[in-house]
Computed example of a mutant assay.
Amino acid sequence: MLFTNDTEEALAAAAAIVNSDVEPRTLRTRDELADFFRDLGYTGRFDGGDAEFERVRAIRPRLRELLTADRDSAAALVNQTLVEYDATPQLVRHDTHDWHLHAVDADRPFDERVSVETALAVVDLIRADEMSRLSICSADGCEGVVVDLTRNRTKRFCSTRCANRSAVAAYRARRREHPHA
């Protein structure tokens, strides 16, 4: 583990929200958002209505900007987010989770909690000078965000689908170059 669990989980969730707007598109329905909330182990308020659904989808460009920013720009975006949502980081322990940071109450809207949790996760990357852990997918034509938490920094694709597509394309190119090999 390179970072704390809550940092890694927040980064993965933010990337999933951003990548929901990249083919294949996800978070297209309120039910998909409810599954996302449950599958990623979120706690706290979840209304599940149309307004919440639209607010979560509306934060995608801002999360993308934060996850693809250089270190100095990311710091400014983090500070802006924490001020905007009147976030006050505090250590909390709940359910099966040991001490970790929350900066807004659990009854705040889901999109606000995601925004602030992402900002707090990026704080760890900025402080550790590890913004290079975030990148854009290497697959041709894909704009998905990649969160690389591997020790050797080898993650290049946003999904298994993109990795497989790239591998098949490379295989076919090699076969065209050397058809009898």
Score class of each variant (00 low, 15 high):
53 F>H: 14
30 R>G: 10
144 G>L: 05
51 A>T: 15
1 M>V: 14
59 I>M: 02
34 A>L: 09
57 R>Q: 08
99 W>E: 12
63 L>T: 01
25 R>C: 13
75 A>Q: 06
41 G>H: 00
67 L>M: 09
95 D>G: 10
104 V>A: 03
1 M>S: 15
179 P>A: 05
112 E>Q: 12
77 L>R: 11
24 P>G: 02
69 A>T: 00
12 A>P: 06
135 S>N: 05
176 R>A: 07
54 E>C: 03
74 A>E: 09
39 D>G: 04
161 R>W: 01
109 P>E: 01
171 Y>V: 13
148 D>K: 10
147 V>A: 07
139 A>K: 02
97 H>T: 08
73 S>N: 13
163 A>P: 11
20 S>H: 01
119 A>Q: 06
87 A>G: 13
108 R>H: 04
36 F>Q: 08
15 A>T: 06
94 H>E: 15
172 R>E: 11
147 V>F: 03
145 V>D: 08
98 D>Y: 12
48 G>S: 02
175 R>A: 10
181 A>P: 03
163 A>W: 01
18 V>S: 05
94 H>M: 13
180 H>W: 03
8 E>Y: 10
178 H>Q: 10
34 A>R: 13
91 L>H: 14
127 R>F: 11
79 N>S: 04
137 C>Y: 00
49 G>N: 15
172 R>L: 06
32 E>Q: 07
73 S>R: 15
114 V>F: 09
180 H>N: 05
68 T>Q: 07
163 A>H: 10
22 V>E: 04
80 Q>H: 15
164 N>Y: 09
49 G>E: 14
31 D>I: 02
126 I>E: 08
71 R>M: 00
45 R>V: 00
65 E>P: 06
39 D>M: 12
175 R>N: 04
125 L>R: 00
147 V>E: 00
22 V>S: 04
45 R>L: 05
92 V>M: 13
35 D>Q: 09
16 A>L: 12
34 A>M: 07
11 L>N: 06
155 K>E: 01
3 F>K: 12
